[in-house]
Design a protein around this nucleic acid. Structure first.
Lengths: 340, 340
DNA sequence: TTGTAGGCGTTATCAT
DNA sequence: ATGATAACGCCTACAA
């Protein structure tokens, strides 16, 4: 344990000052080629690797970012994390992932922890619209960027999202084009911008298509499999049941498919189902869920890019970055023409 | 940016020394109640939170562990990470996840990065049996523990795994009990202990059941959907096709199910399929994959527990921790009696 | 119970 | 091109 070799040991062996060791470590220009070599040799024979903690303390830079997600086992976040981890690596950045609930308390703890660890920036992938804790960080100019879900009420916030309102309209229109006129909507808590926007889109689409809004066709609760399943099952037992379901999440769509099977409905002949997100399982041949694509990869890559430019302040214009991508309709096997 | 408040600022405001601030921060016993209160007040009015980096440098402890996985978007790792992240949080630990390839180079980079960040311990969830880089860390007594996959050749290594050999035998026996006698085996690269052991178990089970080993029924390549799919498809086109497939991974089992559908085979009437891992999608009603459970949660919790005891050296006996759990057969819809 | 001073392993600022 | 030396923000003897 005492075997740690420091830059001093290297310096001694290479017969230079520790400062010079630091210089070659950081690729400073003004070091004689020969000196540089001596140092490198010493580094190798001693098997020295710099203490990033000490380095961070002195340089005020950790080369680490934080990623806050709600549940990494949720494939949407897992796939997102994969992209971000791999991408960050290319920039020599590591990432501390915090898997936490989204209530204000947990969120505050997450932010504080990350702040304590002195990360260079934070990606919030599971913001609730009311997470106001970030405000003080924004005021300090600390790099925070929202991925997918964003908060409201802070003008200067940076985010990368998909046009959820538009996505929802596309989904509903797809259903309407297939002659569905009674479309149930399954939403997660509208305290999340994604669900909020999708709900808005659903309502708008209904209106534009001259369809009436029916409260009894709406689920607007937690994203819990069993609850969604029950809600859908109840609707399906009704003779007047909707011919189509628009779920604001693929995960919820799966629960609806389950309910359809359980109640003996055949998809898509008796009932059409469309989701949102395009998680990996959606494309499984046995599932074949029609859905709206989130374009995760693009969102993730853009988010990281923006974050780094905030960190390095090489943002020519320090305007807030507000990026909204267009979603994409993906038709698979769970939506079809209404033939009742 | 210069607005950082340090323990000194707090000390000044509270009219104590910085040492005392440190003391209340670390809950030292011998601080007068009143002094403690003054300090707390100062902390609150200044909004001070300690710099964990400086703290780490001084204390040689980062309260951070590293987790090395192969692909966090793979649901097996995603589910594992979820458990570990949430669990570590309870101990006030954060985790840096490294998502890297498993070749020796990438592995070495991952280990070195984590070492540079001075993490207190490392969980390797995607070891290849030949990853020898860890040896020097073991020799230094650095806490490393293998989760699920382990390495060979280092006597003192710590690991938590499931009995893969036994799991494979259970799977094959289940198939044999259902009158299957021609059982294909789909394996990932046997450089991973899991695949290696499962392969061994498969062969042993065949032998114990008086079945002969047929090379043409074996896939032993990368875990790539398309390749597994094609391999299975080719077998299924054969008149003499196997009546059952044992996939050493649920992911691979999904590809086989796909191939079955593509070739018009009905599961489980024409063909039985069993996987290994019990990832979440396996229990989806539309999939209903029979499989062998990995008992992820127990493995993950045990791993973390062992790691912390290594970190805190409160391991009465410093014997290597070698834990092997028993796997469990989960019968769902993809396996049935052979009726040919 | 509280304070003083040195140290953790770098980077950063002056000199030379 | 290189070297002293002072930070960085906290912890930890040691002293009082």
């Amino acid at each position: 344990m005492k075997g740690r070799v420091s830059a001093y040991d290297v310096a001694k062996l290479a017969k230079v000052s520790q400062t010079t060791v630091s210089r070659v470590l950081n690729n400073y220009p003004h070091v004689r080629k020969e000196t540089r070599k001596r140092v490198h040799d010493a580094i190798n024979t001693l098997g020295f690797s710099p203490d990033e903690i000490a380095r961070s303390l002195a340089s005020k830079k950790t080369n680490t970012i934080g990623l806050i997600v709600e549940d990494i086992s949720n494939s949407f976040y897992a796939e997102t994390a994969h992209i971000i981890l791999r991408e960050a690596q290319k920039y020599d950045y590591e990432v501390i992932i915090i898997d936490a609930e989204t209530d204000e308390n947990s969120f505050e703890r997450a932010i504080n922890t990350l702040n304590g660890k002195r990360v260079d920036g934070i990606i919030v992938a599971s913001a609730r619209m009311d997470n106001q804790k970030v405000k003080e960080f924004y005021d300090k100019g600390f790099p925070i960027i929202f991925y997918n879900r964003r908060i409201y009420g802070i003008e200067e916030s940076h985010y990368v999202e998909v046009d959820n309102r538009l996505g929802a309209k596309i989904a509903v229109n797809h259903l309407v084009e297939n002659k569905h006129r009674k479309i149930a909507f399954i939403s997660g808590p509208t305290i999340y911008s994604t669900f909020y926007q999708r709900f808005e889109g659903y309502k708008e689409a209904l209106q534009e298509n001259g369809l009436e809004y029916d409260e009894s066709l709406i689920y607007k609760g937690e994203v819990i499999y069993e609850q969604v399943f029950q809600f859908a099952l109840n609707l399906m037992r009704d003779k007047e049941m909707p011919t189509a379901f628009f779920a604001s999440t693929d995960q919820m769509a799966l629960a609806i498919m389950d309910a359809a099977a359980r109640s003996g409905r055949h998809i898509p002949y008796d009932i059409s189902i469309i989701g949102f997100d395009d998680i990996e399982i959606a494309s499984n041949p046995y599932i074949g869920l029609s859905t709206i694509s989130q374009r995760k990869r693009e969102m993730a890559v853009l988010t990281l890019q923006k974050l780094f430019s905030l960190i390095n302040k090489d943002d020519s214009n320090s305007e807030p970055n507000k990026i909204t991508l267009e979603p994409e309709l993906i038709i698979r096997k769970t939506t079809g023409v209404n033939n009742q």
